[in-house]
């Protein structure tokens, strides 16, 4: 028992290591982040640990006190939620990339001109991120509601707990169609993009980043956010199917 206590007390101080930052990032950022973080680590000698998940889920975990220094969301709404509770350092807010929603399916499926043409046979199913916690699902719901398809397709929908799960459902052939980001469709060679969703049908897809007010390594976090808006990072977003945003910091 004593040994356990001693072990525990030894383990905790290492958490506050000065040169470590912990990032909570939207699931759709996984591949691009895996490319970006080693470059940042090399340049600044700051170690990064990243947790991926649906933005809504991550925001809830931060609300409950998850020890995170930087939050990268796929939806402005979740940062707003944290702002209301003063959990984030508002001055550090940046917007660094945009994305697009696409409909994906098996190679054999017909390409569509517009999303309005989407029709499912009785046995087909459609994967969507859970609209209550997955931004890709929220944007999809907005779109389908606007063109009056949501109600019609709802019974054939399977909800994923993040956008990568939706991609995996379609990749494995378990579900026929799915709505994911253009960047997700791009990294997968097992699915085809059937059509792009008209961006005017939903809120703009902006990736914001912010440092949390409880962070003990705020300077390192800020450095990372600045890095995200650098030309160097911009090139990498493009390669991964995102559209970079110039200007970074936006007045709020």
């Amino acid at each position: 028992m004593m040994i356990l206590l001693i072990l525990c007390s030894c383990a905790s101080p290492s958490d506050s290591n000065e040169t470590n930052i912990r990032i909570a990032a939207a699931a759709s950022l996984k591949d691009v982040m895996e490319e970006l973080t080693p470059r940042f680590e090399e340049q600044y000698h700051i170690e990064i640990e990243t947790i991926y998940g649906g933005s809504g889920k991550l925001a809830r975990q931060i609300e409950q006190g998850a020890p995170v220094d930087v939050f990268l969301s796929a939806d402005l709404r979740w940062i707003e939620l944290l702002k209301e509770q003063d959990l984030v350092d508002k001055d550090t807010y940046i917007e660094f990339a945009t994305n697009q929603i696409v409909l994906i399916g098996d190679e054999s499926k017909n390409r569509l001109d517009t999303i309005q043409e989407l029709e499912l046979t009785e046995s087909e199913q459609l994967a969507v991120g859970n609209p209550e916690s997955v931004p890709a699902g929220t944007y999809t719901k907005q779109t389908l509601e606007r063109i009056q398809l949501w109600g019609k397709l709802e019974d054939q929908m399977v909800f994923g707990s993040d956008v990568r799960q939706v991609l995996a459902y379609v990749e494995s052939g378990q579900v026929d169609y799915g709505f994911v980001y253009a960047s997700d469709a791009m990294i997968s060679d097992q699915v085809a993009t059937l059509t792009q969703v008209d961006p005017t049908l939903h809120d703009s897809i902006i990736y914001p980043g912010i440092v949390l007010s409880k962070s003990r390594t705020k300077d390192q976090g800020k450095k990372f956010l600045t890095f995200l808006t650098s030309d160097h990072a911009t090139e990498i977003y493009k390669a991964y199917g995102f559209n970079p945003m110039r200007g970074g910091k936006i007045e709020k």
Partner: peptide, 8 residues
């Protein structure tokens, strides 16, 4: 699980 994830 999904209620917690959605904050309900």
């Amino acid at each position: 699980y999904f209620a917690v994830e959605s904050g309900r």
